Amino acid sequence: MNLQQLRYVVATAEHRTMTDAARSLFIAQPALSRAIRDLERELGMTLFSRSGRGVSVTPQGRQVVKLARQALEAVKEIEALACHGGYGTAELRIAATPSLEAGLAGRLLPAYAAMHPGVHVHIVRCDGRDAVVAAIRDDRADLGLTDLPVPADLVTHPLERQEIVLVSPPALDLPSPVPVTRLDGMRLALPARGSLLRRELDALFTRYSVSPAVVLESDERDGRLGAVRAGQASLLWYRVMAEQAVRAGLVVRSLDPAVRRVIAVVHARRRLPLIAQDFVATAERERAA
């Protein structure tokens, strides 16, 4: 058994076909098949069930794939230590939606960078929760920052509950908190259709049988905020980002009943690189602070 065979096993499990796995590894498909058959003979077990449409991982194979991933991650960490005498110029990839990226950059990243100045953090920008999950599953990101729920194959570390609030011109006479039913017929500036926040808001409107008067549809937050400054509409926003509205002289009110979502750091169910483990620990310390 060698590291190359372990890489072949993991790639085959991820791609589900020998052809796609070989392409990702830049080797010929017969060479990949031969290496895996040799490993199966050496171990005395069948790792993959073959069919005309591809391969499926056997129960024994799932255990081997899990351990192979852990072994390869450990090798990567050893290589990083050998090359840089520590974390050095290692890169941590975090998938996040645009609405959460600002909070990530403003609070978590400075706290993490203070302890790990040699680690470069790359933000993988994703359009919604599903895209964050896909980035982690495709190994384009080590961690994700998104709202819950996520599929059960991911591990979650809840950080905070974000509240959706109503931001209005100061002249608008409304109670505080604002009953959700008062949104019926209210002039609102909303995100563009199809965006994650818009889908959440549409679900809220459906749940409470309200139909706001849509004045503006835009994914540009500054554009929606500008409509409120001009007295043309109100908007629904996350409280963590509403300080900008307060500084602009606008009024921020909670909804009744309160509308909240849980934000969490998420990752695959496998051993994380040390730099990712440290980021999770930093996020949990910030939550407790």
Score class of each variant (00 low, 15 high):
residue 227 A to F: 02
residue 167 V to A: 10
residue 227 A to T: 03
residue 176 S to M: 01
residue 224 R to G: 09
residue 228 V to G: 02
residue 212 P to H: 04
residue 155 V to S: 10
residue 181 T to S: 15
residue 195 S to K: 03
residue 169 P to S: 06
residue 158 P to T: 02
residue 166 L to Y: 04
residue 246 V to D: 12
residue 288 A to F: 03
residue 172 L to T: 07
residue 205 F to E: 02
residue 203 A to F: 03
residue 286 E to L: 15
residue 173 D to N: 07
residue 212 P to Y: 03
residue 215 V to Q: 11
residue 176 S to P: 01
residue 163 E to M: 10
residue 166 L to I: 00
residue 160 E to F: 05
residue 183 L to I: 02
residue 170 P to M: 13
residue 194 G to V: 05
residue 196 L to A: 13
residue 204 L to A: 02
residue 205 F to P: 05
residue 239 R to F: 11
residue 261 R to M: 11
residue 278 D to C: 01
residue 238 Y to K: 13
residue 170 P to C: 12
residue 233 A to M: 02
residue 167 V to P: 08
residue 234 S to K: 06
residue 189 A to Y: 04
residue 225 L to G: 02
residue 202 D to T: 12
residue 166 L to A: 04
residue 268 A to P: 14
residue 226 G to S: 05
residue 221 R to W: 13
residue 202 D to N: 06
residue 193 R to G: 04
residue 183 L to T: 01
residue 208 Y to Q: 02
residue 262 V to N: 14
residue 158 P to V: 00
residue 273 P to T: 08
residue 214 V to P: 06
residue 213 A to S: 13
residue 162 Q to R: 14
residue 179 P to V: 11
residue 176 S to R: 04
residue 228 V to N: 07
residue 207 R to M: 07
residue 225 L to M: 12
residue 159 L to N: 06
residue 210 V to C: 11
residue 287 R to S: 01
residue 180 V to P: 05
residue 187 R to M: 07
residue 288 A to I: 04
residue 288 A to G: 08
residue 165 V to E: 11
residue 240 V to E: 13
residue 241 M to K: 10
residue 206 T to C: 06
residue 210 V to T: 12
residue 265 V to S: 04
residue 175 P to Y: 05
residue 194 G to F: 05
residue 266 V to R: 08
residue 190 L to Q: 08
residue 187 R to W: 00
residue 281 A to N: 01
residue 201 L to D: 06
residue 191 P to H: 10
residue 247 R to Q: 14
residue 262 V to T: 15
residue 243 E to K: 10
residue 198 R to W: 10
residue 287 R to K: 14
residue 225 L to K: 00
residue 282 T to W: 02
residue 210 V to M: 12
residue 270 R to G: 12
residue 157 H to Q: 11
residue 202 D to V: 15
residue 272 L to I: 08
residue 204 L to G: 08
residue 263 I to D: 07
residue 211 S to I: 00
residue 233 A to V: 02
residue 224 R to M: 13
residue 264 A to W: 12
residue 191 P to I: 08
residue 157 H to L: 11
residue 242 A to H: 05
residue 182 R to L: 15
residue 282 T to F: 01
residue 162 Q to S: 13
residue 216 L to V: 09
residue 247 R to S: 10
residue 284 E to N: 09
residue 165 V to G: 11
residue 251 V to A: 14
residue 160 E to R: 14
residue 253 R to D: 12
residue 287 R to E: 00
residue 245 A to D: 13
residue 169 P to Q: 01
residue 203 A to C: 00
residue 244 Q to C: 05
residue 198 R to L: 05
residue 205 F to Y: 14
residue 270 R to P: 05
residue 226 G to F: 01
residue 238 Y to P: 12
residue 259 V to N: 07
residue 225 L to Y: 03
residue 167 V to S: 04
residue 289 A to E: 09
residue 164 I to L: 15
residue 219 D to R: 05
residue 263 I to C: 09
residue 224 R to F: 06
residue 271 R to H: 11
residue 207 R to F: 07
residue 155 V to L: 12
residue 215 V to M: 13
residue 181 T to W: 07
residue 180 V to L: 15
residue 222 D to H: 05
residue 281 A to R: 12
residue 207 R to E: 10
residue 266 V to A: 08
residue 178 V to N: 11
residue 279 F to P: 00
residue 267 H to F: 03
residue 158 P to A: 01
residue 171 A to N: 07
residue 180 V to I: 15
residue 251 V to R: 15
residue 238 Y to F: 15
residue 248 A to I: 04
